[in-house]
């Protein structure tokens, strides 16, 4: 059962990968499309690229980078975790809401402190590969 579910999950991600695998340049529609039905056109100067799949037995992830005029402007992550396949899509049209505050410095009784280490190198490598791919695109 577990294996069957895993197979389903793999299939689901594969479909998503295929759906997202764009051709360059995008094919022209055979007839002039009405504006409401026109596929979204990539903005000029935008390139996308995909990094290698990073997999562990129970989760896998793939990074897709978007460059605008050579600058990193977006990262999309396809994620498959356990038997529950899902994609973590970034909705580029949603208006992001952020709360701004002044940086505070204080002390408090806590159980644990989260801080940066340099253990995320492989993530960075994966992003680099996606960017190289975008530049080749």
């Amino acid at each position: 059962m577990r294996r069957a579910l895993a197979t389903l999950a793999v299939t689901a991600v594969a479909v998503v990968l295929l759906a997202r695998y764009e051709t360059h340049p995008p094919p022209k529609p055979p007839l002039p499309a009405r504006p409401a039905q026109a596929p979204p056109r990539p903005e000029p100067g935008v390139q996308t690229g995909t990094g290698p799949l990073l997999a562990t037995p129970f989760s896998s992830i793939q990074v897709r980078a978007e460059l605008t005029r050579g600058r990193l402007t977006g990262v999309q992550t396809l994620s498959l975790t356990g038997v529950d396949a899902h994609t973590q899509e970034i909705n580029a049209r949603a208006e992001p809401i952020l709360v701004e505050e002044a940086l505070a410095a204080g002390s408090a009784d806590v159980d644990v402190v989260s801080g940066a280490t340099y253990t995320s190198e492989s993530w960075r490598d994966s992003l680099r590969a996606a960017i190289r791919d975008a530049r080749r695109g």
């Binding site: 594969a14 295929l18 995909t50 290698p52 990073l54 997999a55 989760s59 492989s122």
Partner: peptide, 26 residues
């Protein structure tokens, strides 16, 4: 399985064909 199902699309950018680098999520 993923490589087959995606027609090889997923490992675009992989340093070596068939090589795996799971360290990103390890």
């Amino acid at each position: 399985a993923l490589r087959t199902a995606t027609g090889g699309a997923f490992d675009a950018g992989a340093p070596l064909p068939g090589a795996i680098d799971p360290s990103g999520l390890v």
